[in-house]
Design a protein around this nucleic acid. Structure first.
Lengths: 159, 159
DNA sequence: CTCCGTTTTTGTATTAATTACAATTTTGTA
DNA sequence: TACAAAATTGTAATTAATACAAAAACGGAG
């Protein structure tokens, strides 16, 4: 069974592997991403960890994420404008966002690659598949998902 | 042959079709999007049109784009964080962004849909496929595209 | 054509995410 | 233990986008 200490060790090992010094913040951020596959924003990560690390600053979260991005430890999900989310899972998968509640979930993409032959002169580094719509919960609770200005306002907290 | 007046009329007709009053700004914004398939940001649209419409304000660009989004006249491309781009072409296609020069181009996606059966309780409204990498021009001009912090800084102008 | 209510456009102020940067603290090692 | 390098922090600045209210343009009824 997976324990908290296990993911902590796993995170540290993963960092050493990538030649990134496993400082406390880095380990805790990566551990959070491994334990909580909820595609958090930088702000959500900060909120989740500020209790554990009382001196934590937002800049450190941004620094950490930048390091992780540079080393390919996490990928950035830009499914929603102006609110980057981060994902530590490397297997190929797509992301769905509910336009009502803002939750993001993974799904398996059917095709191996979406890149066609017409891009043969290009170097492809990343591939992202994003779906937008309504999740089952929000369908149940009403609204057909075609309301105007649905979830257009910025909101800080979303899962 | 396609003339400037033609796309202007085309844009106006498209708007009337969607029950959106074809004001000058709306027609010119839509015309720009139809004439220039370069996936502009709001700011780029503003820069492109401020000469033609001297009283233009950025807010009007945002208002116009919001109306277009609500009516399904354009779609929003969030391939790059913190810089939404807009596209008036409705046929299914993916978007590639060059991590060096920031240019965005279209490509045909190979599979009809990327949504798998596992999402059968969901309502899918939009599907986006984004690729990131290096375009042929930037490959020629050097750099392997794996530089750290490559095009991480915000920059206003990009095509 | 003119009046009047509605829609569109505009300008200013605000919000919120992210970055810049310099100072401080921590870390690894000689 | 001491020192250089790396990590962390706090503050200020930047930027895209939004809120909102005032001004302007529009369109139909009389």
């Amino acid at each position: 069974m997976k324990t908290a200490e296990n993911t902590e060790k796993e995170a540290a090992a993963l960092l050493k592997d990538k030649k990134v010094r496993p400082s406390m913040i880095r380990v805790k951020v990566l551990k959070y991403l491994l334990d909580n596959r909820n595609h958090p924003t930088a702000d959500r990560l900060f909120s989740a960890l500020e209790n554990e690390i009382p001196t934590l600053s937002r800049t450190s979260i941004y620094n950490t994420l930048k390091t992780f991005l540079d080393e390919g430890i996490v990928s950035e999900i830009t499914i929603e404008d102006g609110n980057s989310r981060y994902d530590a899972f490397t297997g190929k998968h797509g992301h769905f966002i509910c336009e009502k509640c803002g939750s993001v979930c993974d799904f398996d993409v059917k095709c191996a690659t979406c890149a066609p032959e017409s891009l043969k002169g290009y170097k492809i580094n990343q591939e992202h598949v994003y779906l937008r719509g309504l999740c089952p919960n929000c369908i149940k609770s009403g609204g057909d998902g075609n309301e105007k200005n649905f979830r257009k306002k910025r909101c800080k907290k979303s899962s």
